[in-house]
Structure formats: C-alpha cells, structure tokens
Write a protein that binds this DNA or RNA. Structure first.
Lengths: 199, 199, 199, 199
DNA sequence: CATGAATGAGCTTTCATTCAT
DNA sequence: AATGAATGAAAGCTCATTCAT
C-alpha cells in the first residue's frame, strides 16, 4: 500500500511507514492493556505522537485500527525439533506458555471474546494470526508422529490440540498463573490416549 | 422499648425485592452482552424500569453493581450419577457445554478477563461462583474414582481438570462452537492417562 | 413552636427538640465549611443522624434550613468595660478578631455574600444576627463617649464603625490572617479623627 | 529544517481567539452571578456558543477555567493626580467604590472567600489581580505623601489601607449599598491619624 | 499530508425533593 | 412522627468522529 509499483511517485508528501508502524504498535499495547472499549484514540494518538486525523486517514475508524493492529501479530515462536514427539510437544507448549501471558495476562484474549458480538473482526483476526498458527504447529507435530506410526489409528488430533492448548486457559482462569512444569504434565496425561493400543 | 416479636419490621418504606432482582438480572445480561466497560447504568436503569439513584442506593458504584450481579450466578448443574466414572465425567462436561455458551458465548468470561487489570473483583467473583464450583464437581468425581482404586496412583487430578475444562475454551476460541460428542471425545483421550499402569 | 401553651398536649409523637437543635448545629457547620450551594441535605441528615424527611417536616427546603441555622447564631461576646473608650474599643475589636475567623475563616461571610442574588435571606439574617449586633456594640461605646464630650461634635460614628470593622475584612482578604496588635493599631489611627478639634 | 522566518505559524486549524475571549467573559459573569459551585460548564458552553470539549481543550477543568477567568481581571482604574494627597485618596476610593459593586455587588468576593477551603486558587488569583493592585495604588499615594513629609513619622500605612478599603466591605455587609460621599468621609476620619503630631 | 480545533452524545455520580409505609 | 425508597434533573468530564487550515 505504501510502495507504488509504477515508476511515477504519487504526488504530495508520502506517508511515513514508520509512523504507521508506531501507531499500530501503540494500538496493540493499548488494546491488550485497556481492552477494546476502554482503548481511546485520543490516548493512542498521544502515545504515538501523532494527531487523530493522521490515524483516521489510514484507518476508517476505531474497529479498523484495532483490527489492523491485530493483523500485525505474528506467531513469534519457531517450530521446534527435539528429536521426540513428546519433546516437541512439551517444547512447543513451553513457548506457548511464555508468550501467552504477554503483555497482560489473558486480557487480549478477553477483549476479543468480550467484543465478539460488537466487533467480530477482532476475534476473527485473532484466530487467523495467533490461534490457528499455534494449533497448526501442534497439529503438525502430531501429524508427523501419526504418519510415523507412533500414534493410535483414529486418534483425534484436533481434540488433543484442544486439550493441550485449552488447559492453559483453564488454569489461568482458575488461578492467573501457570506453574512451572505444567506443559510436561499436560503431555504426560494426554499422551497415553494418543498412543495406547490395548487396555 | 419492649423487644419486638420474632419478625423485626424495619422502619420506613420497604424495598421492593422484585426491583433488586430485576436490576441484577438486567445487569448480568448487559454485562454479558456489552462487556463491563460498555455496560452503562443509564441503560440498566432504563431496562430495569428504575431510576439511577435507585441503583446507587443499593450499590455504591458501577463495579459494585457488576460484582453483585456476578454474585447471583450459581452453578445450576446438579451433580450427576451415571454409575461409571467416565459416564459421570461425560455427563458433567455435557452440562458444562450447554451452560457455558449462555447467554452470549464466552463474552462474560471475556469481559472478566479483559477487566482483570482494572476491575479485578469481577474475575475473583467469577472464579468463586462458577469456575471453582465447576472444577470441584469434576474433582469430586475423579477423587472418588481414585479412592476406589480406578485411577493410577499419583495421577494429577488437577491437571486432568484443566485439560477437560480448558478444551472447551480452546475449541470456542478456534471456532465459536462446540460440536456434539465433544465431551465424550475429551474423556476418551484423557482417560488412559488417568488409569493406565504400564507404558 | 415546640412548647404548647394550652394544657392539652398535641396528639401523636411529639417532636424531639434535641433533634432540631442537632440538625441546626450540623447545618451551620456545613454551611460554614462547604458554603451554601455545596452543602447537601443528604450529608446533613447523615451527620445529624436523622432522615431527610425529618428535616423537611421542620423546614420547607434547603434555604429555610440554612436560614434557620443562621437564626441560631448569637453574638457570644459580652460588652466590655475597661474604663476608657479606646480600651473598650480595642477589647471589643479583639473579641471580634477572635470570633471572626471561626470556624472557617471568612467562608460563612463569603457564602452569604455569594448567595445574595439567589438566596437573599441568608445575608439578611446574617446581618440581623451578627453584623448589626456587633456594630451596635461599637456604636454604643462611641455614643457614650460622645455624650461624655470625648468626641468631636459631628463625628460620624457610623463611618468610624465601618472603618474599624472593615479593616479586618480588608486584611483577611489580603492575607488570610490577622496579626496580633491589629485592633490597637486600628484604634490608634482612627481615634484622632474622632476627637481632634483643630488641624 | 530551515528556520522559519520571524512569524512562526503553528500547524493545524488555528484557534479562534474570539472564542477564548468569549468563554472567559461568560465564565467571569457566571462566576460572579452564580458563584463558583453553582457555575456550570454546561451553561457556560451554552452561553458562549461553544461545546464543552472546546472548553476542556483549553483548560483542564472547572477550577482552571475559573482561575483563567479571574486572571483576565485587570484593575481598570488608572492612577489619579488631583494635586493633593487627600484629593488623590478620595478620587481613588471613588473609583474603587464604583468598580467594587460591578457586576454583582460583592458576590465575586463572596465566592472566592467561600471557596477558600475547596479551591484556594480563586482567592489567590483574586488577590493578585485585584486586591493587591488596589492596595498598591493607595499605598503609593500614601508613600509619596510620607516622603514629602506630609505624614507623621511611623504612621502605619498598611493599617491605613486596611481601614480605607475595608470600610467599603463593612458598609456593604451592613447595607448592600455605598452612600455618596462615603470616600470623602473615610479619608476625613483617617487623615488626622496619619498626619497629626501631638495629642 | 498532517495538524489542532470542534462537536454531539455519552459516561458515572450527586442533588433537592417527594412518596409510601 | 419518622423512616427508607424513589425520582428528574443536573453536574463534571471523556469519547469517536469531523472540520478547517
């Protein structure tokens, strides 16, 4: 959107891409810290050092700004390779555990859920950028294990992902903190259901 | 000066108990539908058919009102008894699944999480009234099974509860809907980790 | 108003005169501390330990209550007699100086002046109860001196009173504090204008 | 990056200076007519023909607005020169008398006194802008006279100022009106105390 | 293009007063 | 007579958005 493909540069003063970046960064922080409805464009403009019309020139309104901020979210955690499936699962969940609570516990998740009825784009983007990629990483690990014959045939991998990921939400909702060693315990309890043949 | 007989009638115009009930009911609905920060006392007063001071006479401010509304929440689901441990777990999770999405998906959970930094009482009460009782029901089932020797010694029941309950959150966050048969699949996958002896 | 002159006691529960006294005392304090428009019946009722209708039963509204409270004001300072006119003046002004700033500087005077357009009764009563009596005391001293021939014929005693009393207001308005010895200096400067014959 | 030439034009839509002037003028009127606590930003905005945020953009809150309005007060009366000290005093006090009651008697003084405990800035500014300058004018006249040897050595000029100025307050508090010829009478009575040698 | 100015609508809270018991 | 409950109106302040330069 910023870089024109034609040789001719567009007339007038060009937009500063750094400005855009800064606005989105500030927006994301406020979104996580204050929640969507408390987040105010006034404060964002102030913190980003720009004026409000500068924001409105780029995004049509508050919802679009928040959406754009969420769009910048990228799963930062790289795929892991520890040599074993359970090792990979544990390592991935440990990454998850670390990034989940940043920067403000579950308040970002909270606000996209709370706004589902009013501003469904938020949840949609949150899914696309964070939820789905995270699940894909786990699914990929499990899928590879399945193709290697490590897992029971017919094991519902999607259910396993829900269990492993969800346990963090459940734990946070109950106690606002994730204990050390939690990922390992999760995998230990779910793994038998994935592999076992007889009973 | 003579002691009043049994039923002490307090002076002044009595409060209409119906009013209080209606205000709290409306508040809870608005809290779930709008989220805490969007929820306005003006609208609550309007919907409850009272004036704002009528609300302020009962609760000192917005946070207290929301808190009081959360306090009315009671886990409606009775303990189940199907004859088997897995049956009980599945039945309990099915109740959970049904009540979880009422009245507005996870928006109530969302708002208490989103407000954790600003209005921590909300999350605290939500925990006390819904989260903890629900976990207790599952824990009770598992604990009984353990005392009967059905479960592996050293099985971490708390982790199992996190897995079972959390899967619903994970699934909702990924797809806003819980498929039929989900509870059964959860239990099927976690159960081996609870019972198996060797590996 | 409380005591009936007829033998027959009026029917129903009699009003408690102590209640009335307490309400007026609290009102006067709030009037001086908060000013008329900040003073709230809610707070007065609370501080007096009564309900608002108990107040409204006795006085038709806020203005009447404030008026009634002002009506209870009595000049507490007794006439002085030091043996000399200037001594009497100084002693009287010293009393004045002491009582003027109680309990809240000039805020009571301030509020009755500020409310002159909206609630003229306040200023009227303040005059009747405090301003006029105080001036009368000074006038009486000067008048006696005049009848004794101490003062110049034609000396305008009313002007002298304005000077002596007003100096306290001017001083407070300029510095919020009255220095020790102030009364003596005032009298020293005004006295020559009252007595001297030639110039 | 090149330095702007002499007249620096700030970016953005310029403020209408007339707006600011009008708001302050309206504020000052309301402050005098209603008193500080009755004065409402809603009414000021309405009367000034602006919206409330237009006011809040310029001043952070009600107290700051009232303060700013007081700051615009300027002693309008120029120094006088009649040729004699008593003539100057009388002329100055006549100016005082005229401006004192505008626009609403002593209600402005009243409100700054009444608010001393809650909003001390008001009294502070009132002093700085009106009380002190007025006293300075009188002090300057007396000081010049002293340097000319017209006054008794050791005459306390500050006390004289308190007497002369305060008499207007005392008179207003007693009768809400200043009679014609009042300044002359004040000076006549105080003058002997300033000049006389023996007694 | 970016700015500062402006706005209508909304927020939470408090007030003087009246009602019902 | 006295109470607690109720109310319409208003307060100070903030928001998302648009205007004018």
């Amino acid at each position: 959107m910023v870089a024109k493909t034609s040789v001719e540069k567009s007339a007038g003063r060009p937009r500063d891409p750094e400005t855009e970046r800064r606005i989105l960064e500030v927006t994301l922080r406020h979104l996580a810290e204050e929640g969507y409805s408390r987040m105010s464009l006034d404060n964002i403009a102030l913190a980003a050092g720009v004026s409000k019309p500068t924001i409105y020139r780029r995004w049509p309104g508050k919802a679009d700004l928040a959406t754009a901020a969420l769009r910048t979210l990228q799963l930062a955690e790289p795929p892991v390779d520890t040599g074993t499936t359970t090792g990979d699962l544990i390592a991935t969940l440990e990454n998850f555990s670390r990034s989940l609570l940043r920067p403000n516990g579950l308040s970002l998740i909270g606000t996209v859920l709370a706004e589902e009825a009013h501003t469904p784009e938020l949840l949609a983007l949150f899914r696309e950028r964070l939820v789905v990629p995270r699940r894909q990483m786990l699914l990929a690990i499990l899928d590879r294990a399945k193709r290697r014959g490590e897992l029971r045939r017919g094991a519902n991998l999607d259910v396993a992902v829900n269990l492993l990921v969800g346990a963090f939400y459940a734990r946070y909702l109950a106690a606002s903190a994730i204990p050390a060693g939690f990922p390992r315990e999760l995998v230990a309890m779910v793994w038998p259901g994935l592999v076992r043949q007889r009973r």
